[in-house]
Design a protein around this nucleic acid. Structure first.
Lengths: 259, 259
DNA sequence: TGAGAGGGAATTCTATAGGATATTGGGCTT
DNA sequence: AAGCCCAATATCCTATAGAATTCCCTCTCA
């Protein structure tokens, strides 16, 4: 192998003396994980595409071992899957029915989570919730709405509510489910900020009033509205790029490589 | 290193020519994972205990790399957690309130999953369900009930119902939740087989009749009964081994090693 | 006598190399 | 001409070794 760049050895020494002594120099696994996740969410790696380890190793300047571990982590989140002795592939794009299942699942959990949160949440969670809600309103109020930022805020809000429920398993699951939506949000710039914003406000209002029923209802309404928006976006997309498979959104098979 | 045993190099050659050509020779990661999981469930590794990689490497005759990967997988399931540059530890034993949260979560999902299954399940899943149910009845009918086997059957039944719901996310989550109960079931030989068996039968009956409401109710009853049995067992355990922390089951801190 | 700093051992983390496996292209047979 | 078999290449999987970090014990000093 040629000496491309000194790469990594002994570079962590530099990271140790940066602004935050409490923030650990992220392990290479974490770095690789973040990069990978970002690539997956922004579709720099296409769904279903083969993820070559050594190619990534070159691109990220990280040896294969940490990359392997990061991919294992992603596999556990169902964002990638592994075929033994063949390699890793990015998870397939969710089909229409699967999106529906996802919302069905969310409807089972999140409304009740909101109800629990209304009853049991700590003040800290409420504070974080109001701050986040205000920030999102400000972002959406601006002329040029940053969709990515809004999507991130939406994810954080739902996760916060789940955390506020005080049930660790609920929070865990909600977080896990949300990741899958990221990819779709990148594809379809849906989730009309104004509407979603109002729905969010209704949820937060009910929570702060500690009205469990109202919170449950508001969350349910939000999810169902969101589901319909997603369904409409999917339908539009199908019309825009019709495929011979019928109405299910195309499976990007793509034997193409990542970079 | 001394030549303890030839260990792994070139042993896979032998495995290739065994009975099932379709069954791949399990990768070392899978082997390590299974061993680890077994050790955790049977508490050969105590909750909270430090898991030394190189110690395991010696015991399992597997090099550290695959073990690392298996531990990463377990970490994703929340059965272990990692402290960077320090190592992996087995997850702490669930506290009383956490057990309650777990059942709360299951009650959100599984009854509806049963209802969905009643409406949408394939015949294959129903067949598997009836077979499993019969087998469990036979096992429990025997004089010496094998608790471990019964617990395994219970887990499989719940997972099957979740799968039969046709919602991949539901199935995924239910499976993930069940793992945590395994450890408890090993501790407290609860889940009175006779009662649980009747409750299971009620669920299966409702499913086969494709009666969604009945299935939902039967599952809810089963879970609530199970929750109460678990609570009683926990209370007994607290009385038996009282600790100064109050009524929450003791956290086994244990800096002890695994083997 | 107790507290804090320094050094050493143990362990984790990353990199690299070798062996094993699947895939692709060419040649041969039917 | 089509299908099958075989070899070469690329990739993955595992093992081993070196670098970095943490923990613990000891020594020193107030």
């Amino acid at each position: 192998m040629v000496a491309k760049t000194p790469a990594s050895p002994a570079f962590s020494r530099l990271l140790t003396l940066r602004e935050q002594p409490l923030t650990y120099p992220k392990s290479l696994v974490e770095l690789a994980y973040e990069q990978l996740l970002s690539m997956l969410v922004t579709m720099k790696i296409a769904p279903g595409a083969h993820i070559g380890i050594e190619a990534l190793s070159r691109d990220l300047q990280i040896s294969p071992t940490p990359i392997r571990e990061a991919l294992t982590l992603l596999e556990a989140q169902k964002l990638a899957y592994k075929i033994p002795n063949v390699g890793f592939r990015a998870a397939d794009l969710l089909t229409g029915p699967e999106i529906d299942d996802l919302f069905e699942m969310r409807l089972l959990i999140e409304p009740k989570a909101a109800a629990f949160a209304a009853l049991r949440s700590s003040q800290e969670h409420f504070d974080a919730l109001t701050i986040l809600s205000d920030n999102m309103a400000r972002v959406a109020g601006g002329e040029e709405t940053d969709y990515a930022q809004f999507a991130e805020g939406d994810a954080r809000l739902h996760h916060l509510v789940a955390q506020a429920s005080g049930n660790r398993f609920v929070a865990q699951t909600v977080e896990g489910l949300h990741v899958h939506l990221h990819i779709f949000r990148f594809l379809f710039r849906t989730n009309a900020p104004e509407q979603a914003l109002q729905e969010h406000a209704a949820i937060v209002r009910a929570l702060l009033a500690r009205d469990a029923d109202a919170a449950e209802g508001a969350m349910r309404d939000h999810l169902e509205a969101s589901r319909q928006r997603m369904a409409r976006a999917l339908a539009r997309h199908d019309v825009a790029t019709p495929d011979r498979e019928g109405s299910t959104p195309r499976r990007i098979d793509s034997s193409e490589r990542c970079p």
